[in-house]
Amino acid sequence: MSCPFNDEQLMQLQAFIELCKTQPQILHHPRLSFFKEYLVSLGVTIPTATFGTKHFTPSGDGSQNETGEKAQSSTEEESEQESDVELDMDGVVEGDSIGDDQLMGDSNKEPSDEDRDKSDEKRSEAMRAFSDQQFEEAIKLYTEAIQLNPQSALLFAKRGQVYLKLNKPNACIKDCTRALELNCDSAAAYKFRGRAYRLLGKFEEASHDLCESLKIDYDDQTNEWLNDVKPNAEKLRQHKLSVQRKKEEKEHREKLRRLHKAQEARSQAAKAQAQANAQSAPTGGMPSGMPGAGPFPQGFAANDLGSLLMDPEIITAFQDPEVMAAFQDLSTNPANFVKYQSNPKIAAAIQKLQAKLGKGGSMPFGGGAGFGKGPSDDDVGLD
């Protein structure tokens, strides 16, 4: 089956996949609901939404590694490393548990005009209760308004603000995340969620959200909250950069180690092959007149034999069947070397052996130093 996409489309798809890896919360965007539903149908677990964290990877990121074991190991390593960073934890609170009473409304409901009007009335009542610091009442009224109009990002953001006043940062984050799913440019949702992250000690996430809020709509309080989290967020950022550098250096050293090991293995294999070739060549039927099978020049030592057997030219010459047959003949009757003087191949082999063993002297089977210049009376044994 041919690929139904062209190169440009494949590049766009690859870019989208990379975005999903670094910002899995993007899968909760309403316009990507079809893709999210498809992934869920395949049994994929979608990470909890932290929608709107553009160009940002929060600490404890939920992206998956190649294996669950690697992901767990990486998370544990990062936790241990971040524990070494000295942070100002003043003002950090224990996280709240989200109860079933935090109703989110029917996300598929399309409110009528009447529903919107009633929802606005409830919102006005909730705002008055909030001004009177009747926070529980405000939560109740905002919840009623949300059930009437669950498509209003403002209602979720405002209820999140009330949860923040009640020191329930996790409930605030849940509401503000829903608000950002409905409206990714909600400055209030970024602002209150950023403050909630700060209360939980998630300084990088807090810094990001507060920055996003200021980009959309500047607010003095938001700027003050941002200045409060910046020192800790910067410490964590620098620490992560240091950890990343150390990781890359470690991977580089490991790569060099593997490369060196592979080079050593290739070198050992080459030596073993050369030794095997050297050992196998003479066993193919060295003539009996060769070293160890007949007379050799006077003073021929064992190391001379080793030098002969390791000589590549000698080994190559004796792998030729014609040369082997000639030397077998010569080992039987050394006087027969005369008939091989006209054969260039055999003459060359005899001269190589003569130079190696005799150093210009006599051959082990009677050949003289002048082999190749023509037979003499002494060579053929005539009177």
Rank of each mutant, 00 (worst) to 15 (best):
L10V: 07
L19C: 11
C20F: 07
K21F: 08
Q23W: 00
Q25P: 00
P30T: 11
E37Q: 15
V40K: 15
V44K: 12
P47M: 11
F51R: 09
K54Y: 01
K54F: 02
F56L: 06
T57R: 12
T57E: 13
N65C: 06
T67E: 03
E69W: 00
E69K: 08
E69C: 01
Q72M: 10
Q72N: 12
S74N: 07
E78T: 04
Q81H: 13
S83D: 14
D96Q: 06
I98V: 15
G99N: 01
D100C: 02
M104G: 04
D106W: 06
D106M: 10
E110Y: 07
S112I: 09
D117W: 03
E125K: 01
A126C: 08
M127R: 15
F130M: 11
D132K: 01
D132H: 04
E137H: 00
T143R: 13
Q151Y: 00
Q151P: 00
F156V: 11
A157T: 00
K158R: 12
L182I: 05
L182D: 03
N183S: 11
C184I: 06
R195F: 02
E204M: 10
E204L: 09
L210H: 09
K215E: 12
D217T: 08
T222F: 01
E224W: 14
L226E: 06
K235V: 07
L236V: 07
R237Q: 13
Q238G: 02
H239Y: 04
K240P: 00
R245S: 08
K246E: 14
K247F: 04
K247L: 09
E248M: 11
E251H: 02
L256K: 14
K261W: 01
Q263N: 14
E264L: 12
K271F: 03
N277C: 11
S280V: 05
A281F: 05
P287A: 15
S288Q: 13
G292C: 05
F296Q: 13
P297L: 13
Q298V: 11
P312A: 06
P312K: 03
E313R: 10
A317I: 10
Q319P: 01
A326G: 03
Q328N: 15
D329N: 09
S331M: 05
S331K: 05
S331I: 06
P334Y: 09
N336R: 12
K339N: 10
Y340C: 02
S342V: 12
I346C: 05
A348N: 13
A349E: 09
L353P: 01
L353A: 14
L353C: 11
G358T: 11
S362Q: 12
P364R: 10
A369I: 03
G370V: 07
G372S: 07
G374N: 02
D383N: 06
